[in-house]
Design a protein around this nucleic acid. Structure first.
Length: 501
RNA sequence: GGUCGGGUGGCCGAGUGGCUAGGCAGAGCUCUGCAAAAGCUCCCACAGCGGUUCGAAUCCGCUCUCGACCUCCA
């Protein structure tokens, strides 16, 4: 068995072979922290978290780099631009760092809610301006970029001419033909600093109102969007690394441009496997800011979005995403999430019950068919994972085992139907796949409101017991609550209060 | 217009040339003080039209239809 992943570059599933086993370098494009993350953002991070977890499970030493884009036009999403030039007081000015901080924290909080493992390195674009400038200088020196009026552009036509001969034309990743693009975009062309419409910016001269700016050999400005990933990936993973991931919408132009820049600088294709997750759709349409159909993660978790009838826990959302294979679109709806919530609860109830049982390995099986069936379902789990991370099939197999576990629980079958060794196998492998590989953690369903409700109910029952002079019951309630760290106090006015210790 | 990817039962979603996942919802039964949970059973779909084949939802062609991307933007 070997892990196979779909490589967008070659358009086929390929056996994963690290360049320097057991080390694996993986770069994933992270968020732009100028606004709150939405459900669409969650998919790549959960997808690549599962890939990361699976690689770790296979024993690889993975360096997982996921950047934070904190350089750009800094204006808070949804807020109208204010006049930043005339604003005199420092505290009145828009301070990009403040936004970066706010949304980075929110993003980290969401990642944590999803039980995503933190990446090994989480570099920021603003922390790597020097590396980006150095890279641009190199590209200019090699003749693949030019300065125009304080900005620097990548010469796509020239790159294509030179690298087509080396079997790496511009457009190799997205399957685009440069001539076609020139034809289709010619009409739109106007007077521009760029030599060709297809050229992209490496460095942009900052207009006077642009508040994020840095000194460079070409004047004050800010880096183009694509260069940050090339610079950081090269710095932390080297000229060539194993996996580059991100959403499918980044394939072009972002990743295509990365390939061109990095190839000029480092003289080789930066990554070996390009992995792209598909989009989350809502009513068949990509969830995205431009469509005005985003459901923010915080709205999902507290149920405040109008299309939701209730709040959904982070694990429900994670499970919802893992019920599909990452390369297909996933259609989101309240109904679909409700289905996931119920399914997850059933799975986890069975899993947790089984986890608490103990089996002895010397017990023989009286139902060889069932015993074998369980082993088959378990043995298929790695096969499904290794077939391009087919988490949908993994989940399906987990559900095959749920009725068997529940049958044991409800004594519809006896424990000896299955051998002790097989039960132990099932216990261990469910724990491995549910908790380690899929990263689903047990959520305690109790919140403060519910807990308070329960305590009030007990106080109520205690009152009734006291009224009936049933002091045995009333004392039992008070004493046992106290043992749990909840102290009930009978106040002078007959009311009852409680405190947590 | 160009490039690419889809159309699977009420909903979400796997999938393979023949043995036709899984979840949710729905129906029946069992269990059950009531309810819930749980178990068992049922619900056999693959856009349309042709073609290849002993056999296709799965391969080919056409049609219809939906979507993504198309260079300064997360």
């Amino acid at each position: 068995m070997a892990l196979k992943i779909y490589n967008s570059l070659t358009r086929q599933k390929e056996v994963f072979e690290p360049l320097n086993a057991p080390y694996v370098g993986m770069y994933v494009c992270g968020p732009t922290v100028s606004g709150e993350s939405h459900l669409g953002h969650a998919r790549p991070f959960i997808t690549f978290d599962v890939l990361y977890r699976y690689l770790l499970h296979l024993g690889y030493k993975v360096r997982y780099v996921r950047n934070i884009t904190d350089a750009g036009h800094f204006e808070e999403e949804g807020k109208a631009a204010e006049d930043k030039i005339t604003s005199k007081a420092i505290l009145e000015k828009l301070e990009p760092m403040e936004l970066v901080q706010k949304y980075t924290h929110l993003y980290h909080w969401a990642m944590d809610q999803f039980n995503n493992l933190p990446p090994s390195i989480e570099p920021t674009a603003t922390g790597h301006i020097i590396e980006q400038i150095e890279m641009i200088k190199k590209i200019i020196a090699d003749g693949f970029a030019y300065e125009a009026n304080g900005s620097v552009y990548f010469d796509v036509i020239k790159y294509n001419e030179v690298y087509s001969k080396k079997n790496q034309p511009y457009g190799i990743l997205s399957g685009r033909n440069l001539e076609d693009q020139l034809d289709t975009t010619r009409e739109l062309d106007n007077q521009d600093e760029k030599k060709n419409k297809v050229d992209f910016a490496l460095w942009k001269k900052a207009p006077v109102e642009h508040i994020m700016r840095w000194q460079s050999p070409w004047g004050e400005g800010f880096p183009g969007w694509h260069i940050e990933c090339s610079a950081m990936a090269t710095k932390y993973l080297g000229k060539k690394f194993d996996i580059h991931g991100g959403g499918m919408d980044l394939q072009f132009p972002h990743h295509e441009c990365e390939i061109a820049q990095s190839t000029v600088c480092n003289h080789e294709m930066p990554a070996r496997y390009w992995v792209h997750n598909n989009m989350i759709t809502i009513n068949g349409r990509k969830m995205g800011k431009s469509y005005n159909n985003v459901v923010k993660l915080s709205e999902l978790f507290d149920g405040s979005h109008p299309i939701l009838t209730q709040a959904y826990s982070p694990m429900t959302v994670r499970f919802f995403i893992l019920q599909s294979q990452y390369r297909g679109t996933l259609d989101f709806s309240n109904e679909a999430l409700q289905a996931s919530e119920k399914a997850l609860r059933r799975l986890m109830d069975a899993y947790e019950w089984l986890k608490a049982q103990s089996f002895t390995s010397d017990k023989k099986s009286t139902d060889a068919t069932l015993d074998q069936q369980l082993k088959t379902w378990i043995n298929e789990l790695p096969e499904f994972m290794e077939d391009d991370l087919n988490t949908a099939k993994v989940v399906a197999n987990l559900f095959e085992m749920v009725p068997v576990i529940n049958s044991l629980k409800d004594k519809h079958i006896t424990a000896d139907a299955v051998s002790g060794a097989t039960w132990q196998l099932v216990q261990a492998q469910l724990a491995l796949y549910i908790e380690q590989v899929l990263g689903i953690k047990v959520e305690s369903g109790v919140n403060k409101k519910q807990l308070n409700g329960v305590i009030h109910l007990l106080i109520e029952i205690r009152k009734e017991a006291k009224a009936k002079k049933d002091f045995a019951t009333s004392d039992k309630i008070r004493n046992q609550l106290l043992e749990m760290g909840i102290q009930i106090k009978d106040e002078k006015d007959g009311e009852v209060s409680f405190t947590f210790s």
